[in-house]
Nucleic acid binder design. Structure first.
Lengths: 130, 130
DNA sequence: ATTTGTGCAAATGCTTTGCACGATA
DNA sequence: TATCGTGCAAAGCATTTGCACAAAT
């Protein structure tokens, strides 16, 4: 992947992802794309989503025991995962300051970033359980 | 899995895991077990590690794009993942206080816990790159 | 004209599962 | 003796890859 070419497929995939309000799996993006563009293959969806994430246009959000998911937002933010339905929500709260430096000093590692993942139950699942 | 039975295999698997200073994958545990107990199958290692994690005796630590790993520690703590070698280290710093409540209030979710994952370069990889 | 990206199908890697048998309570 | 756990091999999923062709520079 020396030079990036602008293919119609990449633009379509990016457009579809931008329409998602949730953080879809590759398959969810693929299914949505199929509706309007049935010739685009799943391998192409995989390849382009990964490449868009590598170039920083979007983000990959992977949670344990889950297929990879993508986030149309490019900025760094925290996430919440519902233990019941598996849904992932954005958590926009202030980033914790100074914590990278604390860990860096204590362990002699070089830290570039930290992620925070909250786990619990989402509003809908709370409602459904009542 | 109505009642848990104490099998020799489960005890052996737990003993081996306790000897690891890193956070091994299932396969790493399996390979180590093979040396002394070549009849224990990988499926049994999978089943028992999962069950031990469910019962709270150990912890599963999964990182994106990585096979599942297990942690002999049962207490909740943060982790660091090296971007180069993939190794996972424990990060024992004070847990961030109040952050669960902030997110809970803002999003109407019920939060049980949060995980923090640092990403960067470990001491050995820093050394090797020089 | 080159060279990269695509579509397809096959391959890969990790994890789970069905089943008959052995082990545990 | 009634179940549960094990070992084995096969199945299941998510993801990647090889290849010939199409598309982009």
């Amino acid at each position: 992947m020396t030079v990036k070419r602008n293919t119609v497929q990449r633009q379509i995939i990016l457009d579809i992802l931008k329409k998602f309000h949730i953080h879809p799996t590759v398959d969810e993006v693929y299914v949505e794309i199929q509706k309007a563009h049935p010739t685009i293959s799943k391998a192409t969806v995989y390849r382009n989503l990964r490449q868009l994430a590598e170039s920083g246009e979007i983000r990959q959000v992977s949670m344990s025991d889950d297929p990879e998911r993508y986030d149309r937002r490019a900025d760094h933010h925290y996430h919440f995962k519902c233990k019941i339905c598996g849904k992932i929500l954005d958590v926009d709260i202030d980033h914790i300051k100074g914590i990278n430096e604390v860990a860096q000093q204590k362990y002699g590692v070089k830290i570039d970033e930290h992620d925070v993942t909250f786990k619990g139950i989402c509003p809908e699942c709370i409602k459904n359980s009542k």
